[in-house]
């Protein structure tokens, strides 16, 4: 039963609860016109203590497409927070006005703290470098739609695997499904942190390998999750020059890839996926961002208990 729950960490929901959300999301994808009034009379509060236009628009579009309405702020200077109000008071106030809250905050753990003072469902819309559970839900739904299953997959994660929170959450989330193999593709400086490997991959005895070059492994992949590698993350110029092209996906690298490869990216991209790939049927990243809205629609409907 998801009604009334908060979503703070992707692990807050069981695999069965996630399936419930994904089932509804797939229904919405098939027939969005059946859902245009399900949140009639309901109000979403979007509390963005730091700006994130893309995530806010996704939440707002989701609520509006369900027939609900939206209030909120997109940066704290325009709210009572600027006057020095503490977080519990802000949350209590907004919870009194709205039926559900989506909250983004630069400090890690702020949504967990805020949820303790909210008697309406509170969704973490990103807390610093910590968690971004609706991005994880987006990634999982896209994988489910693209592959028709969540098991028996080889997933390549490419780019900055050290600082990328979406990658860490995805590894955690996918580790709950059977027979998933991870190929971790990154420069030495940006390898997956030891604690992720120890806590998740080693503890669950999951199959994984770490490599430096995408072209060495691309033919094995069912899913390729690209992230951005920033020059300033490298320790020296020589390594950057040696490796920079390994983390840019283009047609040449795709030559040996499977025909049913699914290419994902949390967006925004800079240059890590060449624009020549955009028209390739294996490019799923724009569909992925659309599924992000659909999965938020399903999530809102479930937490409000209207479906």
């Amino acid at each position: 039963m998801l009604k009334g729950k908060h979503l703070i960490d992707p692990q807050d929901f069981s695999v069965e609860e996630l399936d419930e959300i994904f089932d509804l999301a797939e229904e919405i994808i098939k027939k969005p016109e059946d859902f245009t009034n399900v949140c009639d009379g309901k109000l979403l509060g979007t509390l963005f203590f730091e700006p994130s236009t893309r995530t806010r628009l996704s939440f707002e579009s989701a609520m509006l497409r369900l027939g609900g309405k939206v209030v909120g702020f997109s940066e704290p200077n325009s709210s009572s927070v600027a006057k020095g109000e503490n977080l519990p008071d802000t949350i209590r106030t907004v919870a009194a006005y709205t039926d559900i809250i989506a909250m983004r905050h630069p400090k890690e753990g702020a949504p967990r703290y805020g949820s303790q003072y909210s008697d309406v469902p509170l969704i973490n819309a990103g807390d610093g470098g910590h968690q971004h559970p609706t991005q994880t839900l987006t990634d999982l739904l896209t994988i489910r739609v693209a592959k028709g299953k969540m098991t028996d997959l080889t997933i390549g994660l490419c780019g900055d695997l050290k600082f990328g929170r979406t990658v860490h959450s995805l590894i955690k989330a996918m580790s709950r499904y059977e027979n998933v193999k991870f190929i971790l593709i990154s420069p030495n400086e940006l390898k997956t942190p030891k604690y992720i490997k120890a806590e998740i991959l080693d503890r669950k005895s999951l199959d994984y390998v770490e490599v430096e070059k995408l072209e060495d492994v691309i033919e094995q992949l069912d899913i390729l999750y690209m992230t951005r590698v920033q020059k300033e993350r490298f320790f020296n110029e020589a390594d950057y020059i040696r490796l920079k092209d390994s983390y840019i996906l283009d047609n040449a690298k795709l030559k040996t890839a499977k025909d049913d490869l699914t290419i994902l990216h949390p967006l925004p991209r800079v240059n890590e996926i060449s624009m020549e790939i955009d028209s390739d049927p294996r490019a799923w990243y724009f569909k992925q961002t659309k599924y992000g809205m659909f999965v938020r629609m399903a999530l809102i409907a479930k937490l409000l208990g209207v479906r």
């Binding site: 630069p106 400090k107 890690e108 753990g109 703290y113 807390d127 470098g129 910590h130």
Partner: peptide, 13 residues
């Protein structure tokens, strides 16, 4: 001790 944690800025937490 995490300077990015909400506990580093909220009063009374």
């Amino acid at each position: 001790k995490n300077p990015r944690c909400i506990t580093s800025v909220e009063r009374g937490i």
